[in-house]
Design a protein around this nucleic acid. Sequence first.
DNA 1: GGATGCCGTGCAACCGGTTGCATGAAGCGA
DNA 2: TCGCTTCATGCAACCGGTTGCACGGCATCC
Lengths: 353, 353
Amino acid sequence: MTRGSITIGDVAAKAGVSRATVSRAFTRPNLLTPAVVEQVRRIADELGYVPNRIARALSTGRFGTIALLVPDIANPFFPPLIRAAQARADALGYAVFLGDSDETPDREDRLLAKLAPQVDGFVVASPRLDEARIRFHAGQKPTVLINRDIAGVPRVLIDVRGGIEMAITHLFALGHRRIAYVGGPAASWANQQREQAAMAAAQRFGIEELAIPAYRPTYEAGQAAVERLLAAGVSAAIAFDDIVAQGLVAGLSARGIVIPRDLSIVGFDDVLAVTTYPPLTTIDAHCADAGAAGVELLLEIIETGEKRDACQIIPTRLVQRESTGPVTTGEAIPGRSPSAGNRRRSTDQRGRT
Amino acid sequence: MTRGSITIGDVAAKAGVSRATVSRAFTRPNLLTPAVVEQVRRIADELGYVPNRIARALSTGRFGTIALLVPDIANPFFPPLIRAAQARADALGYAVFLGDSDETPDREDRLLAKLAPQVDGFVVASPRLDEARIRFHAGQKPTVLINRDIAGVPRVLIDVRGGIEMAITHLFALGHRRIAYVGGPAASWANQQREQAAMAAAQRFGIEELAIPAYRPTYEAGQAAVERLLAAGVSAAIAFDDIVAQGLVAGLSARGIVIPRDLSIVGFDDVLAVTTYPPLTTIDAHCADAGAAGVELLLEIIETGEKRDACQIIPTRLVQRESTGPVTTGEAIPGRSPSAGNRRRSTDQRGRT
DNA sequence: GGATGCCGTGCAACCGGTTGCATGAAGCGA
DNA sequence: TCGCTTCATGCAACCGGTTGCACGGCATCC
């Protein structure tokens, strides 16, 4: 099956050159006469020769593969990220192993160990593993983290503070003075970061902010949080992510609460915003960019051999759709500048294309 | 990094045996004296020797890896499939390459060629490539197709006819006599299959059925098809997939049409049904099962070496939620048993767990 | 006690590339 | 014209395993 396929020897024989020359025609063409390179490549094409990456890996110690680990492929945050990462890697000549850790640190650990001997490096998105283990693995193989901030390990982060700041500016302008942050998994680094950013920004605006847990980043968890949200007596909520936001919207609508008339909802990630009703105002996390950036950073580290302590920030932006609106009832504490309440302000400032 | 690690030679030297013996101690221990095996393994452990999979792959031609190709990771149909496939492969000791062909046959072709020399086989979900090329690749490496029926190539298929039949039975019982099938990409095998099944089933029930194209399997395409759908004057529609259905629902709602009062909608795949409003009645395609089954079939073929012409059918079931209801207006042709119109019938017969 | 067979082990070739070094031809200055 | 570079190419070793075959020792059997 694999046997019997075209090898470098076949091409060499047909082209009347040595195997070394064929090899160089592909890996170091500048060492050869252009005419020879051209001829070898033509014959290789004719024969349908494809370099055997395994054999190459054995002699160079480089595999031309990377592994991308995610906690849950089915979480809509990851597919665009995976897609972009895969496309970028493919364009740069690398193949991608995909691993799903199923949200469990142990499986993540096992996948890292298992794949290590056959990849040049790792991109680990939203790692669930503890810092010590991550450090250990990162010491073995070039590793780039996405969405996790560990000093010394190259990483790609989302500009959560910027996005949250825009969201709160937006809500403030609409007159909201008492809002909620509906959180995801308590143990999740992303959740802690988002919650802290929301608290800090609210404080700066003099907005009262309550943290309401949703425990898991799912639609059902969002629905289940509705009761607690209503009990909090807020006029707006920022959700951990779009999924939780969607659950909130569904749960609220089911109780006859009209969005955004009665309550404004802001999502996070912009992974399904257009497809909700009403279309969700959300913080676009540019997750595809994060995936591409992670791969690029990793390959740069692999190819230069430099162990730079890079920390790349992906900008966010607020995408204003229809799940947020001005405060209309007097239920919330009006604050000191109620006249600003109905002024709609464009916060749709693109971070980048 | 990889260099400088312990090799079979180091173990051989320390154990005072040949490299061949060390190799056999791991791969064919029954050929050796138990005492030797035990001693070699102990020394290997002491030294921290781990067999190099790449080197092994080069000589055996077996890699312990498979590739999973999908047309678009971001299409919600695939993440559950990928997830299940990855989990199954991992459990059986294989690592998974993921390839996204971006819906283009050429990229699919290229990915197959590129990955072929480093995998033991392929699972190709919803291939976009033409039959001849698929046959060609399947001839080179063990290949299992999901969602594409090519005689002679092992494949896992969705029981589209069964699902459609249940959906139409359901709609008929609700009194619908004139319905539409809102199709996906015309060139897609899945679309053709679904459309034909819908037409055939409708005919059996004496239901009038119109085909309305949506051209692409996207939310926007679904929205764009609304006008054509309304012009058709039907009382119900079956969509190519849940995404198109969601687009239809959104487009209809935006025009003030209430679902299911004014129009019933049935989706296909059950990948986002709960999260729509109203929750979507849909045909559950068990896509996770399909992914797992594809991997299992492939590994069986790889490990037994048999080239069986397998064709495994994944059962479907109708999941009845709230986007379908009885015909209430007289706009549709009432048919001959209008009294059956309001009888709600449970069609939620599980195909399997 | 010698022929026979079995079995555990080693030798060496091989998988399909890459690469350091040697070689020989061409180019060039004196 | 000669000697020195320069450069394109080939030779052969190597990456780290696996495996067909040969060999030699020992038990078995006549």
